[in-house]
């Protein structure tokens, strides 16, 4: 098999996941996009394991590891999202803005005039 088939599939899948992580507002959707990212990586690992004829099974073993980690990550991530949802009644990442300056110092009017990124219109 040509090496490019799995590798390009992995690259494109990775780009899709990247887009999803950046573009989705729902925390769960972001987590799903994250799974795409992880799968792109594992696909590459398996492919490289075959391409490079690795006799220690590194590619597949690490794919297993990553799948395990992904499962753990999903569990924890969802626990966090649920906690967030309990406290804020939303899983929307667009309104989680604690990293920004407090609203008081910025002015409510200005905040109202911001878009999803918080960038002033």
């Amino acid at each position: 098999m040509h090496a490019l088939y799995p590798l390009i599939l992995g690259a494109l899948l990775f780009s899709l996941g990247l887009y999803g992580v950046l573009a989705r507002r729902s925390a769960i959707a972001v987590l799903m996009a994250l799974e795409l990212l992880l799968n792109a990586v594992t696909l590459n690992l398996v492919a490289y394991g075959s391409i490079l004829r690795d006799r220690y099974g590194t590619g597949q073993v690490f794919t297993l590891f990553i799948i395990t980690v992904a499962a753990a990550e999903t569990g924890l991530g969802l626990a966090i999202v649920l906690l967030l949802y309990r406290q804020r009644a939303t899983a929307d990442l667009g309104v989680q803005r604690e990293l920004a300056e407090p609203v008081e110092s910025f002015g409510a009017d200005e905040l109202a005039a911001t878009d999803d990124y918080g960038v002033l219109r």
Binding site: I8, A11, L12, F14, S15, L16, L18, Y19, L22, A23, R24, R25, S26, A29, D92, G94, D115, D116, Y117, V119
Partner: peptide, 23 residues
């Protein structure tokens, strides 16, 4: 509605750029 951020072009740019670079 509002599942996606309003301005998707940076994300699209990053996605396409990543795809282009990686491929």
């Amino acid at each position: 509605e509002e599942l996606d951020v309003a301005h998707r072009w940076p994300a699209v740019l990053v996605g396409l750029g990543a795809a282009g670079t990686l491929v």
